[in-house]
Design a protein around this nucleic acid. Sequence first.
DNA 1: CAGATCAGATGATCTACACCATTTAAAATA
DNA 2: TATTTTAAATGGTGTAGATCATCTGATCTG
Lengths: 185, 185
Amino acid sequence: MPRVSRTQAAQNRELTVQAAAELFRERGVDHVSVQDIMAAVGLTHGGFYRQFDSKEALLPEAARYAYDSMTARLTRLDASTADHAAAQHQFIQSYLSAAHRDRPGRGCPTAGLIQDIARTDSAETRDLLTSGVAQLGEWLDQPGGDGLVTACTLIGALLVSRAAAGSPLSDQVLERVAAALASPD
Amino acid sequence: MPRVSRTQAAQNRELTVQAAAELFRERGVDHVSVQDIMAAVGLTHGGFYRQFDSKEALLPEAARYAYDSMTARLTRLDASTADHAAAQHQFIQSYLSAAHRDRPGRGCPTAGLIQDIARTDSAETRDLLTSGVAQLGEWLDQPGGDGLVTACTLIGALLVSRAAAGSPLSDQVLERVAAALASPD
DNA sequence: CAGATCAGATGATCTACACCATTTAAAATA
DNA sequence: TATTTTAAATGGTGTAGATCATCTGATCTG
């Protein structure tokens, strides 16, 4: 059924970006077809190219959406906890949870998109990762240690845990990194 | 020119695995064609399927080769330094170097293959990563801190640095993580 | 050294997908 | 309501690349 209201069309576009943001993080850009994305929204692949220039052009938009979600999450955490240190602690706990490991689609944009961003030509997309990591690093900063280093540790641990999924090491990594980040060293 | 001596054929097979190990780490399995691999060895794509069942089947062999190289490197480092702590220090320095960032093809197998291994169905391949990370973690162990955590930090930092290549953050990450791992905290 | 073997070359097939030209009809507008 | 827009569907086209059937001739075996 062709033609939908303007607002509906705009919403469809928005939903397409969101679906891409989820699927890209889950499977990686290469393992998601335009059909997959459109099917996730309940549309057919044909209309895609009226809204976007190419599948590649969707990556920056998807990345922006994912990073915006992360920023919103950090803000929400600060609002709902006693102090920033408590927010940091809670973030680290959930970042290193099995749930986060097993659900990359709604998880950390950096962890989910890092490889696709590493090989994209789009400077815009690369900038999104760069500022996202910098922002997270600052948010994680604390008297005792460099937040940027903490961010790298979290990202590395999550990626290793995902790649090792199924083996005992996968859980061990999450536990031991959480323990190390909790103790003052 | 068809038909080559047995030893030549065996060497060709070996070279194919090595080329795949390099190309896979550089570009990721999806961005390397069977032709690319065979061309790197100086052969045509046709003969590939006499030696290997599929491109997928090459991943475990390539991963094994890459991890063996890493193990050899660690052993060599221990042999060429005063004590293990010195070897660890030197490893960390070179791991976090711009050269390592810019040359994934010969670099850390975990950093290079982590996404492809995360997606593969091959338990054998996943086991290679698992034991590789565990081994590196033990090798990096020290009185002050958990080597597995250090390994995650290194891997995360390298991946972030690669994805951010070109921006100042890319160098910053390497420097600040190196500084953090050098100081006792 | 004759016959069997098989590494590697050639060329083709088959599939998956990105991308696009065209159509349709509902919504927007006048 | 008549006209104009345009979102989305349909149905391709073109290409890349994995896989394989077949051929060739050098190497290996007896």
